[in-house]
């Protein structure tokens, strides 16, 4: 049964009525009208739904909304600083990375988190950190270029 649930998303407080077992993804997309976490599989296999919870990348499609509590949820709209896009976003634009772009949310949220922890990742570290994200258009080599560019920015 629907209960009252409070969420902190991109620095704003929200209250929704939802099933406690509803995945966070639907709270963000359907209740709050945010669009960047995307539905790709609902099985935590592709990464398209990734958000940060307290700064760590999490698959929102399998994270129940009642498990979030007072944690800070960050979406793609919230990873920039001082009104500017994240440097990884700037690098993706410079490298013209996406084709369809549906997977981008997962790559950007995971890649930006990687750069927070590991500002100068090696090629192997980038590949390992991104191993669980899918891209069907095959833009992998552009993604590698962009992460390297951002790490040098």
């Amino acid at each position: 049964m629907a209960t009252r649930i409070e969420l902190n998303v991109d620095g704003k407080a929200h209250t929704i009525e939802a099933d406690p077992d509803m995945p966070l993804l639907y709270a963000l997309r359907d209740d709050l009208g945010l669009k960047n976490p995307r539905f790709g599989c609902g099985l935590a296999q592709c990464g398209a739904c990734t958000v940060w919870i307290n700064g760590e990348p999490v698959r929102s499609c399998i994270t129940t909304v009642d498990s979030v509590g007072a944690s800070k949820v960050t979406t793609l709209a919230g990873i920039g600083k001082d009104g500017k896009p994240h440097k990884l976003q700037e690098a993706y634009i410079a490298e013209q990375v996406p084709q369809c772009g549906y997977c981008l949310n997962g790559w950007l949220m995971t890649g930006a988190a990687l750069l927070e922890h590991t500002p100068k990742p090696t090629d192997a570290q980038i590949r390992d950190a991104m191993a669980g994200i899918k891209c069907r258009c095959g833009t992998h080599v552009s993604i590698l270029r962009a992460v390297k560019r951002a790490s040098q920015a």
């Binding site: 960047n36 709209a77 976003q89 993706y92 634009i93 013209q96 996406p98 549906y102 981008l104």
Partner: peptide, 19 residues
């Protein structure tokens, strides 16, 4: 010249069908 849809996709402002 660059693509026109890249920035809006990367910045997350583009509407996809599911939006």
């Amino acid at each position: 010249p660059p693509r026109r849809d890249v920035a809006e996709k990367v910045l997350g402002t583009a509407d996809f069908i599911s939006d």
